[in-house]
Write a protein that binds this DNA or RNA. Structure first.
Lengths: 238, 238
DNA sequence: TTCATTGTTCGATGATAGCCGAAGCATCGC
DNA sequence: GCGATGCTTCGGCTATCATCGAACAATGAA
């Protein structure tokens, strides 16, 4: 008579409180690690692992391995839209919820990730480079366009030809620790960071062990002039 | 730490296969009886009753009592949108489903409901009257506008003043047995039907006990000229 | 009234699924 | 190499919840 589960299987995935908490934590387009999602949902890692594999099998989230971590994000904006719709119905029915807060503002703003720029400004830079078509991103791999090469030479005196390295890519998308979006790694990312310090636009914080990067006033202006503040909006797919 | 159920409660309502089947059966905006929804879901009436009260408590459906029956419909187009979104995600994940078929075409087309016109044409007539602003509908109650009175007098020689009755309203929305949308009842509905027979536009089927109404060729043309074929689209609320 | 139909409530049963402890891989840093 | 961290798999426990039988309430028809 009737067909299989259909929308019920998807809805039941969202229907579990633990999974729903995970999904709402991912709604802004960021990617979170499995253990963070477990913490968000208030469950142990082993339970979270079970939930995450179910969500992945249902096509709601997709993983990205990065070292020991496993980052999860929503598979697309349509998933977020459905979640928003459900939240709307829930609100209409009288249910509410709370939000989380930020922490460590300086570290979130700008910091060193190995040898390149990370944090809010790092993500912002890559977003701007994408929208200016300085780079072209196919899946995980990024490459510099011809306009990008011109831009690097002209604005920052970086010769793209000197960046090629036998064991390291020129451009690489690196998942950002605080923003949970990609910023630019690779030899270009490193070259940009060292250029910023050479030009006195920015410097690593003197406190030993700190990874905070402090921008000077003029440095921040010049940076903004080159890489705007094209703050990617919430649902943009990294 | 975390707030209440939030979207999980809503999603878990849709997450049960039986409830999901009920909701998808309601997605086209029609209203169905409790027992029909039970049949759609393949469960017994008592189980369906439990599900329906939960869905109603969750604000996804709303009931309308009509005689012995209890018709349920979605509370609004937003519910249907969320269900569509879930169906999209389910389809993307590889799940499918089937559809039901029609039956009893003549009876669905046009028939007598007590003393007025029901079926596809009955629903069509009320829809057309609404879009022509001949009637004004507030909630369940319908009233004839001044244009409506003019229209009735001019096109069909019906004097609205003769329709008032101590114990029966002039206009009344009556839930349609086959279409599951409203058609026009009340003294106006009855007057229209008898006028149609007087004008030889339509006649009750001669077979004893049949409630089918047969329209003549010219009758169908005249009827269409007055009440167009403003087929209400799926998500229009009744 | 009496009967039939529709829909509800109650109670018991059963199966699904979330949950965690313990152990097993994989990766990173030393 | 070693230990630490992050994540997964396995096994068993428990609770929630869908399901149906039976009885009850409400409405319409004869």
């Amino acid at each position: 008579m009737k067909a299989g589960p259909d929308i019920a299987v998807i809805a039941s995935l969202v229907g579990d409180p633990a999974r729903a908490n995970m999904l709402t934590a991912l709604m802004d387009g960021r990617a979170l690690t499995a253990s963070e999602l477990a913490h968000q949902a208030g469950i142990t890692p082993q339970t979270a692992s079970s939930h995450l594999s179910k969500l992945e099998a249902g096509g709601l989230i997709e993983p990205e391995k990065q070292g020991r971590h496993r980052y999860y994000r929503l598979t697309g904006p349509d998933v977020a839209h459905v979640l928003e719709g459900l939240a709307g119905l829930a609100e209409r029915a009288g249910h509410t919820r709370v939000r989380t807060g930020p922490k460590e503002p300086a570290l979130r703003r700008a910091r060193i990730c190995y040898d390149h720029l990370a944090g809010d400004l790092g993500v912002q830079m890559l977003n701007s480079m994408r929208s200016q078509r300085l780079v072209r991103q196919i899946k995980q791999s990024i490459e510099l366009t011809s306009e990008g090469k011109r831009f690097m030479a002209q604005a920052l005196q970086i010769d793209a030809n000197t960046l090629v390295h036998p064991r390291r890519p020129v451009c690489k998308a690196c998942l950002d620790w605080s923003e949970r979006r990609h910023h630019l790694a690779g030899t270009l990312g490193a070259a940009l960071m060292s250029r910023f310090t050479e030009l006195n636009w920015a410097a690593r914080d003197p406190t030993p062990g700190s990874r905070v990067v402090n921008f000077t006033r003029t440095g921040e202006k010049r940076f903004a002039a080159l890489f705007g503040d094209a703050t990617g909006h919430a649902l943009a797919k990294t």
